[in-house]
Amino acid sequence: MASKLTEDLIYEILSVVEEIPPGKVSTYGQIAKLIGRDKNARLVGKVLSQADYYGQYPCHRVVNHAGRLAPHFPEQKQRLLEEGIPFKDANHVDIKRCQWDL
């Protein structure tokens, strides 16, 4: 069954992103799971890449399962550093130390 991207789904994803506290990160998969769509991490990424059209959301706090930064989001690292997010290397946050724990 194909996922249909509706405005309701977009705002459902963005409302979860809005809850990520400063100094913490979440993963695309974690957000997908929270909205009941375990296998739709890529859909979450797609929505976040277009989030500016819907308002201001802390999308910089979302990384992949390994803590890798989004490849086409040059400001992400600086924003995370400003919040005190620890990094393992130049492109990966230390997910074990800063993952949002619900």
Rank of each mutant, 00 (worst) to 15 (best):
V62E: 00
K88G: 01
L5M: 10
K33E: 14
Y57A: 09
S49Q: 14
Q50P: 00
W100V: 01
E12F: 00
L34A: 15
H60M: 08
H92P: 00
C98P: 02
V25G: 03
K24Y: 07
H72M: 12
D38S: 12
R61M: 02
N64A: 08
I95D: 04
N40M: 11
E83K: 03
W100L: 01
G29N: 04
L48T: 05
Q56E: 13
K88M: 02
Q56P: 00
D52A: 14
L5I: 15
G23Q: 08
K96Y: 11
Q99K: 10
D89K: 03
Y54E: 12
Q56G: 04
V47T: 10
A51N: 03
I31L: 09
Y54K: 09
F87H: 11
L5V: 14
W100C: 09
Y54R: 06
S3M: 13
I35K: 08
E7I: 06
H65N: 05
E83A: 08
G36W: 10
P22W: 08
Q50F: 12
N91G: 03
D94M: 11
L5D: 04
P21W: 11
V47E: 03
E75L: 13
D94C: 02
G55L: 15
G29R: 07
H60R: 02
I20R: 04
K39F: 10
K96S: 04
D8Y: 14
L14K: 09
I31F: 05
G45Y: 08
G67R: 02
A51E: 01
Y57M: 11
C98A: 11
R37A: 01
A66M: 15
E7K: 13
H60K: 03
A41Y: 02
H72Y: 14
L5S: 04
R68G: 09
G67I: 00
R37W: 02
V17R: 01
V62I: 12
H92W: 00
A2C: 06
K33I: 06
L80G: 05
V47A: 12
Y53T: 09
Q30R: 12
E75W: 10
A32T: 05
R79I: 14
L69V: 04
S49I: 01
D52G: 15
L102I: 14
L34S: 15
A66P: 06
G45A: 13
R68K: 13
L80V: 07
K96E: 07
E12R: 10
A66L: 13
F73C: 10
P22N: 08
R61W: 05
E12I: 01
I20T: 10
K24P: 02
F73K: 13
V63W: 00
L9P: 01
I85H: 03
R37S: 03
P86G: 05
F73R: 15
T27L: 04
V93Y: 00
Q76L: 07
Q50R: 15
K88I: 13
D52V: 15
D94S: 12
A32G: 01
L48D: 02
V93K: 01
T27V: 06
